[in-house]
């Protein structure tokens, strides 16, 4: 990453207020093509809200978002997905009653055409597309080692598989940028390790840029090239993992939280400590 690649996803100065609470304020992000970008911050810092703003679940009240030159802010979530921004959810949101295969096929829905007449009469165009969707979905499932579970109900899958299925479904939308919301949540160390390599290989294989929210600092520091740190809805630091790790503001934000939880006096600690330790577990 010596040459600066073109900016793919750019958020400038976006913000939203919920009933007086500034959930996200003046957030700016630049995710270049093929980047692996981390978004971290203490609990309640506004990371998921930022994702919701980017993907249109909430409407931005200030600022703008562009993806490869197209403006996303003001568009509805499905239009944003069509533009090439796909995501997973912190609390997995699969289509539980549907089969694993159907979940992934739904991912590629937005790249197809769906005419009722074709559907009802099963025209060749319809069958072709349906077959293609299925083949593609099976191929994706194969990449994630889920092909054997294609016929299972999504909700019957073990937790780790559900996480992977969600990523798989998001990739089926043919995204330019993939937003992963705490993909390692609830995973054990070995699962996390394999997740890290999966994320790296996704970038290679699908050529997508990845924006990652993660609590596991080890994982983020390990795989991300660039990290943005949020606290109280605002960017407090941004840069390489090494830079962010040593930024006093970041340490203060994290340790402050630790102290708050410990003593409840709300005063922020100033002691210097390794971030990796501060948030381990």
């Amino acid at each position: 990453m010596s040459t600066a690649p073109a900016t793919l996803l750019e958020a400038s100065d976006i913000g939203i207020t919920f009933g007086g609470l500034k959930a996200v304020q003046g957030l700016s992000l630049r995710v270049p093509t093929g980047a692996l970008h981390g978004l971290i911050g203490p609990n309640g810092a506004g990371k998921t809200t930022a994702f919701n703003l980017l993907t249109g679940v909430y409407q931005t009240q200030t600022g703008s978002v562009t993806l490869a030159g197209t403006t996303l802010s003001g568009k509805r979530p499905h239009e944003i997905a069509l533009a090439g921004l796909s995501r997973t959810f912190q609390n997995i949101r699969l289509f539980g009653e549907l089969s694993v295969l159907d979940n992934v096929m739904l991912g590629s829905h937005l790249r197809g055409t769906h005419r009722l007449i074709r559907t009802v009469f099963r025209t060749p165009a319809f069958v072709r597309q349906e077959e293609a969707m299925r083949e593609r979905a099976l191929e994706l499932l194969g990449i994630f080692g889920l092909q054997g579970l294609a016929a299972e109900q999504a909700k019957s899958l073990p937790y780790g598989d559900q996480r992977r299925l969600e990523i798989c479904r998001a990739l089926a939308t043919e995204p330019k940028v993939l937003l992963l919301d705490e993909p390692a949540a609830g995973m054990n160390p070995s699962e996390k390790k394999s997740l890290a390599s999966t994320i790296r290989s996704i970038r290679e294989r699908f050529g997508v840029a990845i924006l990652l929210i993660e609590h596991d600092m080890g994982l983020v520091m390990d795989i991300c090239e660039h990290i943005t740190v949020l606290d109280h809805g605002q960017v407090i630091s941004a840069g390489t993992p090494r830079f962010v790790q040593d930024d006093p503001k970041v340490i203060e934000a994290y340790l402050g939280v630790v102290e708050e939880e410990g003593t409840g006096n709300g005063e922020r600690g100033t002691g210097k400590a390794s971030l990796g330790k501060a948030s381990a577990g």
Partner: peptide, 11 residues
């Protein structure tokens, strides 16, 4: 199943 997920999948 899930309107929010459906929207996010471009539906």
């Amino acid at each position: 199943e899930d309107e929010i997920a459906a929207r996010a999948m471009g539906i």
